[in-house]
Structure formats: structure tokens, C-alpha cells
Simulated assay, not measured.
Amino acid sequence: MTELSFHPRHVLRAFLRPIDPPLMLLLAALLGFAFLVMMSASPERLPSLQVNTLVALAAMWVAARLPPQRLLSLALPLYALGVLLLVAVDLFGETSKGATRWLNIGVTRIQPSEIMKIAMPLMLAWYFQQREGQIRLREFIVAGLLLVVPVGLIMIQPDLGTSLLVTAAGVYVIFFAGLSWKLIAPVVLIGVVGIGAIVGFGDHLCQPGVDWYGLREYQKHRVCTLLDPTQDPLGKGFHIIQSTIAIGSGGVLGKGWMDGTQTHLAFLPERHTDFIFSVLAEEFGLLGIVVLLVTYLLLILRGFAIAATAPTLASRLLAGAITMIFFTYAFVNMGMVSGILPVVGVPLPFISYGGTALVTLCLGIGILMSIQRSRLLAQA
């Protein structure tokens, strides 16, 4: 009988086999940024950040080992589970700070809306693969309905940031599946007109007593604060004002690691989560921002390269959507902390503190690795 070989070299090779080196290198750079900035912004959270990172990397490795078709086979049950849990949140969820987003399952609390960030693109990629070669308007309508159901349940909670990310994940899949620009253009036009109306008539629309259909009062205040944060500098506008001061005061080279005054004098709110980009900008300046942006750009380019060479329609749609989700996270977070977009609670990808978001994002990296590995195995 031949004995099984457990030589360390063979074990290490088997462990590293599903890992895509360029993606892993870029992820390591971003996580290095996260630890470096967190040591300055909130050092007491470093132990839990280490645990979150290990859990997220384990989830990434498991996803990378699973073949894309196996991942797609989980799409329907994962989507159904996510919708059922969102309904359960609406019926039995725990309310905190005016929002009902958490579900107590006995041993811990979970936020079911996070499941949809992965389940949504998986579900739509699986759906379009089932109809490959016969995708017509009807298929896009059904895909839109599959998207609207969980997004509507998330908005009821309310959670504008998560609903935006889930919507983006679904829309990206639908767009890459071949949605006609004739259908996209009217939506874009309506959005542009709506934004123009808010900017042009902001003084009237932001008056007390003026209701915005479909938005809560605090969401209205976020938009109005974006238009003119100085109207309430110690209240609703405080976050944006302090954030922009921190970003601007960093200059070209920054004030130095752990020397940010806005951060360490506690002027900057939520400096370990939503506004961690402001900490980075203050302490590392424009140079640090450029390095971070280049790292994100390389990550997105690598994701698109994997999507372009993916062997199946579903894997191409999934890889393209996940890559665009990374872009959406970064764009929305940087936009809101710099006063370009309303504050909607979207973290800076791989940098902001938060275990659930980190696990979700690393699962996305793992799915990209799985798709790349399947292509290499197909060519072997």
C-alpha cells in the first residue's frame, strides 16, 4: 500500500491552490491599510478586527475552493432564505436607533440584509444562465421583480445604505446581461431631473413640514445637510463639516501617522467605520489617498479581467457584478465623507471596521478566485 504524503510543501500547495495571487496581494494591501489606520483611529478594536479578518479570510478560502456551478446551485435557496429572514425582521426584528434591522436567533443577532449583497447577484446570474440564448424583455422584467422584493423589504427597515448596495448588485447583473440602453436612458434622465430639482428647489424642499415621498424624515435631513451643512453645524451638518476639515487639512503628505488632530481630539465622528477615509486622508494626505485609489483601481481591473475571460455566462455576470460592487462601496463612501453624496452608512471596502461587511466583501473576492480557478482548470 502506498502511504499518503503529508509533506509540508504539498499541504501548503494544496492550501494555496484556489488562491489567485494578484487578488490576494491587493487584498493584503487593503487589509494592511485597515490595520494601520485602525491603530490610529480606534486601537482598542484591533483584537476584534483580527478575529473579523481571520473569519473573512476563511470564508474567502472556502468560496474560492467551491466551483462556480456549485456556488450557483446555492443561489435559489440562499435568495429564498434571505427573503424569509427579511420578512422575519419586519415581523419580529429588534429595533435600535429607530431602525429594525436585526434578528435575534438565540445564540446571536444577525442582519439578514447582508445576505442579499451576495444572494442577489448569485440569484440573477443563475436566472439568466437558465435562459441563456433566449433573454428577452420578459426575462428582464422577472429579474427586476426578483430585485424589487428584497430591496423593498430592506427599505422598510429602513436601511438606505444596504438597499442601495443590494440594488446596485442586482442592476449590474441585469445590465451585463444585455439590458437595452433604450430602457436605461429614461431612468437615468429621471434621476438627473430629480437631482436637479432637489438642488434647484432645495431651499423650499428642505423646509420643515415638507414631506418627501418614500423617504423618512432623517433621510430627508441627510440630503438637505449635503446641500448646506452650515445650516446646522453642531447637529446634522457636524459629520460632513468635520470630515471635510480632516480631509483638507491633510495636505499632500498628511500630518503623520497617529498625529491627526481631528481624529485624536475626537472631532471626527464614526472614525473607525463610515468616516475612516477621513482619518486616512488627514494622516497620510493626498499621497495616501492616491495609493489607496490605485489599489482599488488595480482590484477592479483584476476583477474585470477575470469577468472577461470567465468560461460561462453566469460566471461572467457574477464576476462583473461583484467587481462593480467593490467600486460602488468605495465611490459611495468617499463621496459621502467628502460632502459629494448624502451620508448613507456605506463602509469603505476592506478598510472600515465591521465584521459582517468584511466577510461579505471577502466572499466576493473568494467568488472571483473560484471563477478564475475554473477557467484555469478548463484550459488545463
Rank of each mutant, 00 (worst) to 15 (best):
R138D: 01
V193M: 11
D274N: 00
A34I: 02
G260V: 08
S5E: 12
W61G: 09
N52A: 14
L71P: 02
G354W: 07
I195T: 13
E139G: 10
V294K: 07
Q231V: 06
A177T: 04
P342I: 13
L358C: 11
V187H: 07
I245Q: 06
L36R: 12
G345W: 05
F267P: 01
T273L: 06
M60Q: 13
L36A: 14
K255V: 08
R70V: 12
S338K: 11
V344A: 09
L205Q: 04
L49M: 15
G82M: 08
L72Y: 01
P121C: 01
Y296Q: 09
S374E: 09
G260D: 01
V151Q: 02
V148Q: 11
L234F: 12
V359P: 14
A330K: 09
R131H: 15
A119G: 07
L183N: 09
R17L: 13
K117I: 03
G82P: 09
L368I: 03
V279P: 11
A143T: 03
R302K: 13
T53A: 14
V89N: 06
G161E: 01
I135R: 02
I367Q: 00
L164E: 03
V359K: 07
G354D: 03
S42T: 13
E270P: 06
L74G: 04
W181L: 15
E282H: 12
K255T: 10
G200P: 02
P186E: 00
P233K: 00
A378F: 10
